[in-house]
Amino acid sequence: MDVFMKGLSKAKEGVVAAAEKTKQGVAEAAGKTKEGVLYVGSKTKEGVVHGVATVAEKTKEQVTNVGGAVVTGVTAVAQKTVEGAGSIAAATGFVKKDQLGKNEEGAPQEGILEDMPVDPDNEAYEMPSEEGYQDYEPEA
């Protein structure tokens, strides 16, 4: 019985440690998101679009440190934060509304985080759909 109880105690310690790591990862992701939003706020009209992409990228980098179902929630929060940063930029006159959601080359930025393969159960990952990809044929 002692062996059984000791095993359960060790398992509990492992769960607590994993929860603490997840909590730490979420806190880091939130900190990076805040950094990115402050970065966007300090940019001029020309830099705002690039700044919004930076927020998304920093958040995406930190999301990889967070495991399990938390990833889905962090990704949703990050996307809403990026959308909010863009709205703030438009409201303050840093950028025109028609410039939001495009990178410096004018290509749409939507789907940055949505296409990231995420499995809350950590069982399997699927690649994003290939609808947006084109076949590449090298020139002879």
Rank of each mutant, 00 (worst) to 15 (best):
S129M: 11
V16R: 08
Y133I: 08
F4M: 14
E83L: 11
M127E: 12
T22Y: 11
G68S: 13
G68C: 14
V16H: 11
K58Q: 06
A17I: 13
S87L: 14
K6Y: 06
K10V: 11
E130Q: 09
G7N: 06
T44S: 13
E137H: 05
G93C: 07
V77Y: 15
Y125L: 07
P117Q: 11
T75S: 06
K10L: 03
A27V: 08
K10C: 05
Y39V: 09
E131S: 14
Q79M: 03
T64I: 15
A78P: 01
V71W: 09
E57Y: 02
A91W: 14
V77A: 09
Y136C: 09
V3F: 13
G106C: 13
A107S: 04
E137I: 10
H50T: 12
A91F: 13
V82P: 08
P128F: 09
P138W: 12
Q79L: 13
K12L: 06
E131N: 08
K45D: 00
N103A: 13
E61R: 02
V70N: 02
L100D: 10
V74W: 11
D121G: 08
M5L: 02
A17R: 14
S129T: 07
T22S: 10
K10A: 09
G14P: 01
E126A: 05
E20P: 00
K6T: 03
V66H: 05
F94H: 05
T81Y: 03
E28L: 09
I88W: 05
T72I: 14
G106H: 14
P128Q: 07
Q109F: 03
G31W: 12
A89Y: 11
K23R: 12
P128L: 08
V48W: 09
P117G: 06
E83C: 01
E137F: 04
L100R: 01
A90L: 14
K97M: 01
K21L: 09
Q79G: 06
V3Y: 03
L8Y: 06
M1S: 00
P117N: 08
V118H: 12
V16T: 07
E110S: 02
V16C: 06
V3E: 01
Q109N: 10
S9Q: 06
E57A: 07
D121P: 11
H50V: 06
E139P: 12
T92H: 04
L8N: 00
P128T: 14
A124V: 11
M5H: 11
E83I: 05
G67W: 09
K58I: 15
T44M: 12
A30H: 00
M116A: 10
G86K: 06
T81W: 12
E137S: 09
T72H: 01
E61T: 06
A89L: 12
K97I: 15
V52M: 02
V66D: 01
A27I: 10
V55G: 02
M1Y: 00
D119C: 06
Y125G: 11
A85I: 13
K58C: 02
G41N: 01
V3I: 04
L100S: 06
V77S: 02
V3W: 02
E20L: 01
V82M: 07
A91Y: 13
G132R: 06
K12Y: 13
Q62T: 11
V15F: 04
A29Q: 03
E123V: 12
D119W: 14
P120Q: 05
K32F: 15
N103L: 07
T64S: 08
V63L: 10
G84W: 04
T81H: 02
I112W: 11
E104N: 04
P108N: 09
G68A: 00
T72R: 08
I88H: 04
L100I: 11
V26R: 00
A53C: 02
A17G: 08
K80W: 13
A11L: 12
V37M: 10
V52T: 00
Y39G: 02
A56V: 12
E28C: 03
K60E: 02
G132E: 14
G106I: 05
G68Q: 03
K80S: 01
G41I: 06
V16Q: 11
Q79K: 06
D121V: 10
E137G: 15
G36C: 02
D98K: 10
A29I: 12
P117D: 07
V74Y: 04
K21E: 02
A85M: 10
G51P: 02
Y125K: 09
A78Q: 02
K58A: 10
K6S: 12
V16L: 13
K97C: 14
V82K: 09
K32C: 15
Y125N: 06
N103G: 09
D135Q: 12
A91L: 09
E35W: 08
D2I: 09
A17Y: 10
K43N: 00
A140Y: 08
E130G: 05
